[in-house]
């Protein structure tokens, strides 16, 4: 456990360092922006509770990315991490439609790649986007840049439809619409 904690700490440290970097010079390095976003993905997984049956059904926590190339190596740190007692398994998808087949718990759709959006909330699937209007198109969380900082908006009814319980704190951090 001790070794695990160390690792978590190291990851969190690395992520926060990236955040700090992003805060200082977010425009210059898109890779850094995605490093922050990667850590966000990890944290969303921690602050959102999946339905019991979904968790029991599957062994890994399947983190699926559409447009993973933008993250560069930032995602590598996530693979193998544990979240809510499950090991993260990374799935780089070509399109959102592949989510069901991959039994995704979390599906991130990079901007410009959401043309293939599912259209409505799916049980046990947390959809995260970075495109304006993503929520209107059935997404649950959308990452937005506000004043040079990456923030997020949550569509709570959608989350509820998907059977996801969002931590009130997370809701508190979300941009109010």
């Amino acid at each position: 456990m001790a070794f695990l904690k160390k690792r978590i700490k190291a990851i969190a440290g690395a992520l926060l360092a990236a955040v700090a970097w992003a805060l200082a010079a977010h425009a210059e390095a898109p890779v850094l922006e995605y490093q922050v976003k990667a850590s966000y993905l990890y944290n969303f997984a921690r602050f959102i509770t999946w339905p019991e049956d979904v968790v029991a059904r599957q062994g890994n926590f399947n983190l699926c990315i559409v447009g993973a190339e933008r993250f560069g190596s930032a995602l590598d740190a996530l693979a193998g991490e544990r979240v809510n007692g499950q090991t993260i398994a990374l799935h780089r998808l070509e399109q959102a439609g592949q989510a069901r087949a991959n039994r995704c718990h979390l599906l991130f759709i990079a901007s410009g790649r959401d043309g293939t959006a599912t259209g409505g909330p799916e049980r046990g699937l947390l959809t995260i986007g970075e495109t304006p209007g993503f929520l209107e198109r059935g997404g649950i969380i959308n990452l937005v840049e506000v004043n040079g900082r990456i923030r997020f908006e949550i569509r709570q009814p959608a989350a509820r439809q998907a059977g996801l319980v969002v931590s009130s704190q997370l809701l508190g951090l979300a941009i109010q619409r």
Partner: peptide, 14 residues
């Protein structure tokens, strides 16, 4: 406890 998310998401304002 109330600051975990703020800390996790680096939200100093929160």
């Amino acid at each position: 406890l109330n600051s975990t998310a703020a800390l996790a998401f680096n939200d100093a304002a929160a």
